[in-house]
């Protein structure tokens, strides 16, 4: 046994688990699923923009979240921690993967992998930068195009004012397309990673991942697009 593997066996069981590729993949699966749960809740809450009441319901919902700090900050802490752990594990795995093939093939064909599965890393990077911008734009309110006029109480107004800009709508729709693709592979992949695989259920899990990925991408994209087209004023 080499000294490197000896030191691994001397480490505690959790450290040992997290140092392995499967341990990091487990972290990605669990934290990814937590963030998926958050995204579903975020979508359902935001769809109140379509209530047709000039934002009364949506702003009331925002006020409710603000007045329930345990829920708001509990969610922020859990999701924030999940994001950090997800990125930490992804970075570690990507480093190992880059080292695992020092010389690249001249020709390497892919036979059955989906575009979604091959772009998890770069899709994830895009989403990471999108999340930073999105928080600065609609949570903190310091990013353009509404940096000066941002309101902490009228979030409906923030959305209406922002999504008059077609370039910004394009950025949001592209990010939601990336999110849909990321979820399509991620939701299927997490079952495989956690060992929850069975030939009878796998086709349904794949279908479910496709449906949820598409619903989330379409659901979120529908809001900026509807505002841009003037359907929501």
């Amino acid at each position: 046994m080499s000294t490197a593997s000896q030191s691994v066996s001397d480490a505690g069981p959790l450290a040992r688990f997290l140092s392995s590729t499967l341990g990091k993949k487990t972290v990605m699966a669990v934290t990814g699923f937590i963030m998926f749960g958050f995204v579903v809740g975020h979508l359902v809450g935001n769809l109140q923009v379509f209530a047709g009441d000039g934002g009364v319901k949506l702003n009331a919902y925002a006020a409710f979240l603000k007045n329930t700090p345990a829920l708001l900050w509990g969610t922020r802490i859990v999701v924030g921690f999940s994001l950090i752990a997800h990125v930490w594990a992804a970075a570690g795995l990507k480093r190992l993967s880059n080292e695992a093939r020092p010389v690249q093939y001249k020709m390497h064909k892919h036979l059955q992998s989906t575009a979604a599965s091959k772009n998890m890393f770069w899709g994830g990077i895009s989403l990471f930068f999108y999340i930073i911008y999105h928080l600065l734009h609609l949570t903190v309110g310091v990013a353009s195009p509404i940096a000066g006029s941002f309101s902490h109480t009228n979030i409906y107004g923030n959305m209406i004012a922002s999504f008059q800009n077609p370039a910004l709508v394009a950025v949001y729709v592209f990010a939601m397309f990336a999110l849909g693709m990321h979820l399509y592979h991620g939701l299927y992949s997490l079952f495989q990673t956690l060992g929850l695989s069975h030939p009878a259920y796998m086709p349904r899990i794949r279908l479910g991942a496709k449906v949820f990925g598409a619903l989330i991408a379409i659901g979120f994209s529908s809001m900026p697009v509807a505002i841009l087209l003037g359907a929501v004023k």
């Binding site: 590729t21 499967l22 990091k24 993949k25 487990t26 795995l93 190992l96 993967s97 080292e99 695992a100 093939r101 892919h110 036979l111 059955q112 992998s113 989906t114 599965s117 091959k118 998890m120 592979h185 299927y188 992949s189 079952f191 495989q192 990673t193 956690l194 060992g195 929850l196 695989s197 069975h198 030939p199 796998m202």
Partner: peptide, 28 residues
């Protein structure tokens, strides 16, 4: 060796047609 991203390229080239269901079993 690197990690598994569950994309299934291994299964496609395996001359003995081993299924990635085995990878799930290993993970479990």
């Amino acid at each position: 060796f690197g990690h598994c991203t569950n994309i299934g390229e291994c299964e496609a080239v395996c001359p003995k047609e081993i299924k990635i269901e085995n990878i799930a079993r290993m993970n479990r």
